[in-house]
Design a protein around this nucleic acid. Structure first.
Length: 575
RNA sequence: CGGGGUGUAGCGCAGUCCGGUCAGCGCAUCGGUUUUGGGAACCGAGGGUCGGAGGUUCAAAUCCUCUCACCCCGACCA
């Protein structure tokens, strides 16, 4: 490809909305254009990289027995009503009507469609397992799209689904995909970490996310400095246990006046206590049922853990009217003892670590001292419901948890029969019974993976593509376009590169050397081959390796092979 | 959904408070001359119904009302 003919334009200045470096570089290197909020055109350079990532995914999945399919974006509401998600998926689901008024949506994910597709074929256990995947544009009407391809509303996703005869077989599939994902992201040249993840509303009870480590990431990861334990903050846990304490010498409960002291900090300061000695009480609405959660005052409640513990679809804080109805008072004075209306109480383990705590009295302006769990109130359960923080003890070894940021590029879920039983995706088992298939689902954000690679591989001059996903592998730079002998030699060399299977471009634009160098660095071609007037006199070309900035002089006749060898070496590193 | 902010040429911006040669600058684009190994210099040119609608006024990018879009922080997020 001649650079003069490429559909792209490098920029010195970028739209101000681009906040993180990878987003700026996508713009500056002429790879994307924005069409609407969270909706982008992929220009040729970006698409070439995306296609390479897709090819790597295809290869790793196909060799593990997966089969590629393609399902539609437009999905009938009936399927979503059948799975039960039409009602609670929320405004993120873009709903549309056809000319007859029929309800459809643009698919944010394809569990419903794949389950329907498979059930139409599935008869016998002898057919299983199936592991099907596709590359497809998903649409999610995100509240706040940002960071370019990182969180778009329309984005390219590889989504895969497995169907097995048993939980055991399904988990084999899960771990096979886990291995495939490790191979895929390694081959893409990424530094990443598989971490334990919350399953959220998609369901299931086991999940890992593949997190690319980057400060610009939206996710927080806690990982052990000693062993391989790593988890998303939503799921992360630390070493803890329920402590049974001798509380026989704790005096009886006593109400104290705490006018206008609402926050834990205010109450602690007012009573001359530490925040650890205060009990924080929060009322949540968990799938329409109010639940009181208590936790030690110096800690935070993790709503994702609460949701998982309750097997709920949705968790939100109760509004003021509900607080009043349940506690008889306002926010700030709520506690587990003396509620106006009985509700389920859940306690975080931390509440058991103190002999007694000071809690809201359920009377405006009052708190109760000496509240003892088990004596003065009994929770329905004691569980890990807190936000774990860096510095706490690893749950698996004697190490300490550390915090870092990550970009979630992939996630694998063990789904069980959540969709297959509700949608009757069943088969006749060996014993003659009709049973639902056991499912898993596996996603990779393809565009996000590309951007994550840029976020992790760039310098002040531009992108530094890993060889395996570079839009082109090499660029030939003739420096004097007014000297026909230079141009001719460069073109001849460019042809020889192509003959060796190198994906190359030649910058035939009538621009000055510095301009071409800067563009080449910005777009991030892994190898630059520089043809100047002096090359013709010395018989050498200069080859620059983008990543290391290493420059070597090579005989012109040996240069193409040099490039081919370098490529081969680079591709082998992560293969 | 709450808070903050921005819409003026393809991109980055000035002008808005205080209405009246304010339709301007830089980059990019086009033509010319000189340059030519790290984003060249000079000369010249093209390009904008100032987000949209309505209003006030002799006069609106500028003031008022309504609206749309976008961005940032937070909340939310298979």
């Amino acid at each position: 490809m001649k650079v003069s003919q490429m559909f792209f334009q490098t920029l010195k200045e970028v739209p101000k909305e681009a906040q993180i470096e990878s987003h700026r570089l996508l713009y500056r290197a002429g790879m994307i254009q924005k069409l609407a909020s969270g909706v982008y055109n992929y220009l040729p350079l970006a698409l070439r990289s995306i296609r390479k990532i897709e090819d790597i995914i295809r290869e790793e999945l196909n060799k593990r027995g997966c089969q590629e399919v393609l399902m539609p974006s437009v999905q009938p509401a009936e399927l979503w009503q059948e799975s039960g998600r039409w009602n609670y998926y929320g405004p993120e689901l873009l709903r549309i009507k056809d000319r007859k008024g029929g309800d459809f949506c643009l698919g944010p994910t394809h569990e419903e469609v794949i389950t329907d597709m498979v059930r139409k074929n599935l008869r016998s256990y002898k057919q299983l397992p199936y592991n099907l995947y596709q590359f497809q544009s998903k649409f999610r009407d995100e509240v706040r799209p940002r960071f370019g391809l990182m969180r778009g509303r329309e984005f390219i996703m590889k989504d895969g689904y497995s169907f097995d005869i048993s939980e055991e077989k399904s988990k084999e599939n899960y771990w096979k995909m886990y291995e495939a994902y490790n191979a895929i992201f390694r081959r893409c040249g990424l530094k990443f970490k598989p971490v334990d993840a919350a399953t959220g509303a998609i369901g299931g009870d086991m999940s890992h996310e593949f997190q690319v480590l980057a400060d610009a990431g939206e996710d927080t990861i806690l990982s052990c400095n000693c062993c391989d334990y790593a988890a998303n903050l939503e799921k992360a846990t630390s070493r803890y246990s329920e402590i049974v304490r001798d509380t026989s010498d704790v005096p009886p409960m006593k109400d104290v006046s705490t006018p206008n002291q609402k926050s834990v900090e205010e109450v602690a300061a007012f009573l001359g206590k530490t925040t650890k000695e205060i009990m924080k009480s929060m009322i949540y609405i968990v799938d329409n049922e109010p639940v009181l959660v208590v936790i030690r005052g110096d800690l935070e409640i993790n709503e994702a853990k609460l949701q998982a513990f309750c097997h709920a679809n949705a968790v939100e804080l109760a509004d003021d009217a509900t607080l009043e109805e349940i506690s008889g008072t306002e926010h700030g004075f709520i506690g587990p003892v003396g509620l106006k209306k009985e509700v389920r109480i859940l306690a975080d383990y931390s509440v058991t670590t103190m002999d007694s705590l000071t809690a809201g009295a359920n009377k405006s302006g009052f708190h109760t001292e000496n509240v003892v769990i088990g004596r003065d109130f009994t929770p329905a359960a004691v569980a890990d419901l807190r936000v774990t923080t860096a510095g706490e003890a690893c749950p698996k070894c004697s190490g300490t948890l550390e915090e870092c940021r990550g970009i979630e590029v992939g996630q694998v879920f063990f789904l069980g029969t959540k969709y297959s039983s509700r949608m009757h995706c069943e088969f006749i088992a060996e014993n003659g019974e009709s049973v639902p298939a056991v499912m898993g689902c596996y996603g990779i954000g393809v565009g996000r993976t590309m951007q994550a690679a840029i976020e992790q591989n760039h310098d002040e001059f531009g992108i530094i593509w890993p060889m395996a996903i570079a839009p082109y592998e090499a660029i030939v730079l003739p420096l004097q376009m007014n000297k026909p002998e230079v141009v001719e030699a460069a073109f001849k060399f460019y042809e020889s590169l192509k003959a060796l299977g190198i994906e190359a471009v030649i910058d035939d634009r009538d621009e000055r050397a510095g301009f071409k160098f800067n563009d080449a660095d910005l777009v991030g071609y892994p190898i630059q081959i520089i043809f100047g007037a002096k090359s013709l006199t010395t018989g050498n070309v200069e080859i620059k390796i983008r990543r290391t900035n290493e420059k070597v002089e090579v005989r012109i006749e040996d240069a193409a092979q040099f490039v081919a060898d370098f490529k081969k070496k680079e591709m082998a590193v992560n293969a």
